[in-house]
Simulated assay, not measured.
Amino acid sequence: MTVHQTPVTSSVHLSTAAPVDPVVDPMVDRSADSTKPDRTQPETALHDEAVRRLKEKAEFRIHLVIYALVNGMLVIIWAMTGANFFWPVFPIAGWGIGLAAHAMDVYWKHEPTETEISSEMDRLRHR
């Protein structure tokens, strides 16, 4: 037994509506999503910079949590072995230097000013 399907048609006719062209006009830029706010070029650059900085801060927080967990486990291992010398100080200090450098890069990054950039360009020209 075969089933025959008939197309369902709507009884509503929109005589005032413009006909819908199924062909996409290649000259129309449809890359922008209509739900997103229209941003000017400087605002888009600012948005991208904000997203980049938020990602860097999230990466630093992950780094900090891993640092605390790993070094906490090393301290627990030291305490359980009953060693007299606090040997976890070496990985804590060594990794701590890297963690501090990461924090400085994320939170205290110095963006060069136009004066500094032009000064450096002049220095490179006169080598």
Rank of each mutant, 00 (worst) to 15 (best):
E111S: 13
T113R: 02
P37R: 08
H102C: 07
A17W: 12
P112E: 08
W95R: 03
V8W: 14
R52S: 07
R123W: 11
G94F: 05
A101N: 13
Y107V: 06
A18L: 09
E111M: 09
I117L: 05
R61E: 15
P42S: 01
R127C: 08
T35W: 13
T44M: 13
A100G: 11
Q41N: 04
V51K: 15
D29G: 04
I66H: 11
R125P: 05
G72Q: 04
M104L: 15
E120S: 12
E49P: 04
P112A: 06
G98Y: 10
H102Q: 11
S119T: 09
T113K: 03
L64P: 00
L74H: 10
I92A: 01
K57M: 15
A68H: 06
A58F: 08
L74R: 08
S118L: 05
S11I: 02
D48T: 10
W95G: 01
K55N: 14
E56F: 01
V106K: 10
E49I: 11
A93K: 02
T44W: 12
P7T: 14
V89R: 00
Q5A: 11
I97K: 02
R127A: 12
P91A: 03
G96F: 02
V89T: 06
S11Y: 00
W78C: 01
R30E: 08
D105A: 15
S15I: 08
R125A: 15
T2L: 07
N84V: 07
R125G: 15
M1R: 07
L54Y: 09
K55C: 08
W78I: 01
V8A: 13
A101E: 10
R61H: 12
R39T: 06
W87Q: 00
L124T: 09
P7L: 13
L46T: 13
S10V: 03
E111A: 12
L14H: 12
W108K: 10
P112I: 02
V28E: 12
I92W: 02
H13V: 15
L69M: 13
T40R: 03
H102G: 04
E111R: 12
T2C: 01
A93F: 10
V12C: 02
L14R: 08
V8F: 14
S31H: 08
D33H: 14
I92M: 09
S119Y: 03
V3N: 06
I97T: 03
I76C: 00
A17G: 01
K55M: 11
V106P: 06
S10M: 02
L54A: 15
R53S: 10
L124H: 13
E116K: 03
M1F: 06
I97Q: 00
D25A: 04
A79Y: 01
K109Y: 15
G82K: 00
M1W: 01
L54F: 09
R127I: 12
G96Y: 03
S15N: 10
S118G: 00
D122C: 09
E56P: 02
H13E: 15
T44E: 13
W87C: 01
R39V: 06
Q41S: 05
P42E: 04
L69R: 11
K36H: 08
H126D: 14
F90L: 09
E120F: 10
V24M: 07
